[in-house]
Design a protein around this nucleic acid. Structure first.
Lengths: 221, 221, 221, 221
DNA sequence: TATGAATGAGCGTTCATTCAT
DNA sequence: CATGAATGAACGCTCATTCAT
């Protein structure tokens, strides 16, 4: 949405700096990027950055908070329409891939900074990140409550889901000629369903033959 | 393992520098760490580092190459003893967790640097990394050939396996009071088997009922 | 006195800025103080300052000129009522201490800026300062003419008087819990009288015994 | 002494930087002087400064500590040879003027920094300064004990002595064509003796006529 | 080989000053 | 007159790298 507004018309300096920082940090990494480069990309003077951000680190932190917060809002909205666990899982995969695909630079920055040992940055973004983790775990938890998923360790399940999505995104980001991330939605979803041993919800037949299940899998991939 | 050798007796300066760099980079990140700190930790003069490494970046690259290479060798050796696909998967999970747990600093550095946009570093470590990816994909491929796993997208499967292991490691690294990584082996393995729809190998009955499969799952968790 | 006027009612922006600058410069020194801080204290916008002062330095210069001029006027007025040299000396000490005590911030700024090597500032304030020096020297000169003081070097006498007053003020300014400056008037005056070998004026006996003089001294201290 | 060594032969980088800083700070003041200017004057690279001093402020503090310490040592040595209070007073005046005259740049820096409100710097140099104050007060105290000086307030006496010497130095420093500071020794000393009502020591005649005293004064000036 | 003092390019940040409103 | 957002030059400081010993 930020990018669109920018393309269309007026964008506040705050947003322009944030967007510039996203591009710059994605290209060479936070520490490699001089503030002057961000300023240049944003079309403002170096000093102007400091009218909007206390220092370079706050620029990074705000960037992550704003954008991740955006992502979470988006994800939560999409999830609210999902009736079944399968729909929820598909929404997570689709939304994750779609958001990252449309915000490639952000994807690069986020993936990197999430791994940095800097406590300051970590704690600043832990809010949105933990919320995302909760969202995923809630979906699994709900599946368990609905008897669509056997009892499994929530944390491990979340690690699998988030880790896989993140790794797929990393592959896409690193590849020179990546195929669209969105083409990976169904294959990944199929693996998730298998991992979580997801059954059809209550109304359906409980006993399915193995053949039947394999057909599902084939249909998905 | 590196640490033990160091403790026992003589360690070459080359190794001492590499170990010092691992610790230092893990603590504050590559760019945050002055070469002088590495030198101090290694007990050598600043200039000495440049007798063994062309520059700071090569220090990082060699570090990753050496250690990841080590890891791959270790992983390959363990895998060579595995008869079944399940055994191979378990070995991957166990070895990954065990190695990272015993080389925490290395784990921190690797996870981070794998995400850096720096092309130089990326290409330098792509060797060992791609080899690890191949190893994982080979295990899945073999499973498919042995009919233990249905035909699935190898890359997606690899993304799921590596991404999940990496994310679990990240959680462990970031946590203040982490529980041992090794306790996650079986839960994670169960998810993997589900995701890959792993069946018992050929000698056994081909048709299994759903109940049977669920017993497996319960037994694992 | 400035503060009172300000408290009572309307103060011109010019004065408000000057007062704000006095406080600010006293607190952290001229170079340490951003113009924006002065503006904030004065309750005006940064740019407004430049409507009244050419630049930051002129703000300092005008401040010193205005306030020192004030002080000189005040001193001259008080001196005009003094009949004897002793009275004049006492007035100098009293007025100096009293003015500084009631304008502590000004005292801090003046003492500091009088020592700065910056030629521009020096020459700008040399007017009031030299006038003060003349005032002091005139008192001594008059004492000599009246035969109350033996012939002595005027400049040295002025250095002693001004230097002592300034040093006492410095001590008072720097002390955490200073005792009132005014308590130092008589002790300091006694020393001055001794230094200048001040005798009773003409009408009295010309020849005094040493005992007599010592009684004076005791009476003073 | 430092300057002499430098002229003669080898001077450590530490001293060269300190000397360069003294010159530079004297010329334009501490805050006006870029570290790069000090480095240039010292004939070293900017970064080299930071091998010897933690930061710019420490450069100033060490400069003041070292040089003032030097001065105190010098003063104490000279004073140890003085038998009478008059001799001690003369030594103080002579040594103060002589040291400042031979270290003009230092004089400028010291006089200025002594007035800065910066607590950090103040406390760092308070050691040598307070020691100097004590030295002066001890001389006066001794004079009182020897009955050469009537009982007077030590602090006020010290303010008069130090303030006068400092003001004379300021005049000399600020003047474009100053006459030698040393020519002021005897006039100033005469004033001091009068201020302190210094008598000849015990062995001599106690009663002196006024004429006699005035001869003394004339002889001194 | 090994050292570590020295270098100087480069960066984060401040702040006096301007100018469109 | 008044504003305050914007500017960009300038400075303090770091640290990768070199080289004389």
């Amino acid at each position: 949405m930020n990018e669109k507004m920018q393309a269309v018309q007026y964008v506040s300096k705050f947003e322009r700096i944030l967007n510039a920082a996203t591009e710059a940090f994605a290209e060479s990494g936070y520490h490699q990027t001089p503030v002057s480069k961000v300023a240049h990309l944003a079309g403002v003077a170096d000093g102007t950055i400091y009218l909007y951000f206390k220092n370079k680190e706050e620029l990074l932190v705000r960037l992550l908070q704003e954008r991740l917060g955006d992502f979470i809002v988006c994800m939560r909205r999409e999830l609210s329409n999902c009736k079944t666990t399968e729909a929820s899982l598909r929404t997570i995969v689709k939304t994750h891939f779609s958001y990252m695909e449309q915000n490639r630079s952000l994807a690069i920055v986020v993936r990197l900074e999430l791994r940095k040992p800097n406590q300051h940055v970590r704690s600043a973004i832990s809010g949105p990140l933990l919320e995302y983790f909760s969202l995923i775990e809630e979906v699994v938890q709900q599946g368990i409550e609905r008897k669509e998923i056997p009892r499994i360790n929530l944390r491990t399940a979340r690690q699998l889901i988030f880790g896989s999505l993140d790794e797929a995104t990393t592959d896409w980001v690193m590849a020179r000629n990546p195929q669209a991330l969105m083409t990976c939605v169904e294959p990944m979803l199929t693996l998730f369903k298998g991992a979580l041993r997801l059954r059809k919800p209550k109304g359906r037949k409980q006993i399915v033959t193995l053949q039947k299940r394999e057909e599902d899998g084939n249909a998905d991939s």
